[in-house]
Amino acid sequence: MSETDHSKKMGKTMMWIAWGLFFALMIWFFQGALDKQHNPNQRPQLNLTQDGKNEVTLKRNRYGHYLSPGNINGSEVLFLLDTGATNVSIPANVAQDLNLPVLGTHYVQTANGSVKVQRTEIEQLSIGNIILYNVAANINPGMDTAEILLGMSALKQLEFKQSGQYLTLTEQY
């Protein structure tokens, strides 16, 4: 192989590497933008009201949902607020990772029909600076997502106010 042929081959290889790096950077950049569109509340706005109550303000995502990072018994989770759910609903694989106790089984009505779930109780649930204790929850084997539906067993303990694309959650005493 001549020196010219070797230089051309090396040049083509470098060009492919440059294009590969360019595409990798573009994917990394756009994935971050997509993640922010899916969950614009990766760091929710925390406030303290004039009367000393903790408050969290969430922005609606591009699909019209409110997502928020939070904690269950000290472990990080992702909540999807769902006022149509009676209880907090946890996918079975997430509940197993959280080591939640099973306190019995029962059937619930979901948008997909009747589902047999396991009853559990969350000792401590937090969203931002709001902490709730002893929250009723269901372990749902039919959920195939990592998002936990934050139902009314938690939300009824909060005041919530929607204004435009923002939802403000305030703790009650």
Rank of each mutant, 00 (worst) to 15 (best):
G20F: 10
Q45L: 13
S68N: 12
T110G: 09
I27G: 06
Q162C: 03
W19G: 01
S89C: 15
Q45E: 12
A18P: 00
A18V: 04
S163R: 08
Q50I: 05
T83M: 07
G164H: 07
M1L: 11
L158A: 01
Y166F: 07
V135Y: 03
I17T: 06
E171S: 12
N41C: 10
I127Q: 04
N138E: 12
Q124T: 14
N140Q: 10
T120A: 00
M15C: 02
V77S: 09
I27R: 09
V77E: 11
P101H: 06
L132H: 08
K161G: 00
T170V: 08
N134Q: 14
L169I: 03
K116S: 11
N129W: 07
T168K: 15
A154I: 03
T105A: 10
L78R: 15
Y66W: 14
N134F: 03
S75G: 05
N73Q: 00
A33T: 14
T4M: 06
K12D: 11
N99E: 03
E171V: 10
E159H: 07
N129A: 04
E171Q: 15
N73I: 00
N87V: 02
M14A: 10
L34Q: 13
S7L: 15
P69K: 09
T57L: 09
E3P: 00
S75W: 04
N140I: 10
S75E: 14
E159W: 02
A33P: 01
I130P: 00
Q50D: 14
A137E: 13
Y133G: 00
P91R: 13
L80R: 11
N93T: 14
N54S: 09
I72V: 05
I90A: 04
I72G: 00
F30C: 04
V77T: 09
R43V: 12
L125I: 00
L34A: 12
T145R: 14
Q162M: 06
A137I: 12
F22A: 13
L46E: 15
M1E: 11
L169K: 02
H106D: 04
R60P: 07
E123F: 03
S89R: 14
G64C: 05
T49V: 03
A154P: 02
L34R: 12
G70Q: 10
V115P: 04
V108H: 08
L98W: 09
K53C: 04
D82E: 08
E171F: 02
A111P: 10
M15V: 02
V56G: 01
Q172L: 14
K9N: 08
Q45W: 05
T86L: 08
T4Q: 11
E121V: 07
N54Q: 10
V88M: 04
K59T: 15
G104E: 05
L80Q: 12
N71L: 12
E159S: 05
P44G: 07
L158H: 05
V88R: 04
F160I: 04
V56S: 02
A85Y: 07
Q42C: 00
Y173M: 09
D144K: 10
D35A: 09
L155P: 00
